[in-house]
């Protein structure tokens, strides 16, 4: 039995210790906003927040997050920074196919929470682990910049 704090709510789940957090979120809890990409922490699609830090949920065993706060794309809009990023994403029409965008937004929010005035270099460094096969990178950067300069 795993005791998890997901999006502000406590859950007691009967899942194996080594089940990846991503499986728990999608298959057990039905939180399908977080996507599965590569499964080896190389693409960033599955990014969620663990105590505010962007982590790859596909390689994170659920036992490693017990007692820590998990936030997913479903609840990120409840935070001011999350809201601002989501609005910027719409304003800049960032999304093309959209598959990677949950992960992009989670990484962007984690960055802006730590560095509200993130500069270009910080943006590149923080976002470079998130791949986008539609290559929306320039719009992603512009959207993040609009929040960091606001």
């Amino acid at each position: 039995m795993q005791k998890l704090m997901i999006n502000g709510q406590e859950h007691n789940l009967d899942v194996a210790d080594d089940m990846p957090l991503l499986w728990v979120l999608r298959d057990v809890m039905g939180l399908t906003g977080t996507k599965y990409g590569c499964g080896i922490a190389q693409c960033g699609v599955c990014t969620v927040h663990l105590d505010g830090q962007a982590v790859r949920s596909c390689v994170l065993p659920v036992s490693a997050v017990a007692g820590r706060k998990v936030t997913t794309i479903e609840a990120v809009g409840e935070q001011a920074v999350g809201q601002a990023v989501q609005k910027a994403w719409l304003d800049h029409e960032v999304v093309q196919c959209g598959y990677c965008q949950s992960g992009q937004i989670m990484s962007a929010v984690a960055l802006l929470q730590e560095h509200p005035k993130a500069n270009d270099e910080q943006i590149v460094n923080a976002m470079s682990g998130n791949l986008c096969r539609c290559a929306t990178y320039t719009r992603i950067r512009a959207a993040i910049k609009s929040v960091s300069q606001a």
Binding site: A41, Q53, V55, R56, V59, V124, G129
Partner: peptide, 18 residues
């Protein structure tokens, strides 16, 4: 490093998932 390593090591070397 940014393409391949940061997903687990982070640019500040603090370790991401673990």
């Amino acid at each position: 490093f940014n393409d391949t390593c940061v997903a687990c090591h982070q640019i500040d070397g603090s370790g991401r998932q673990s």
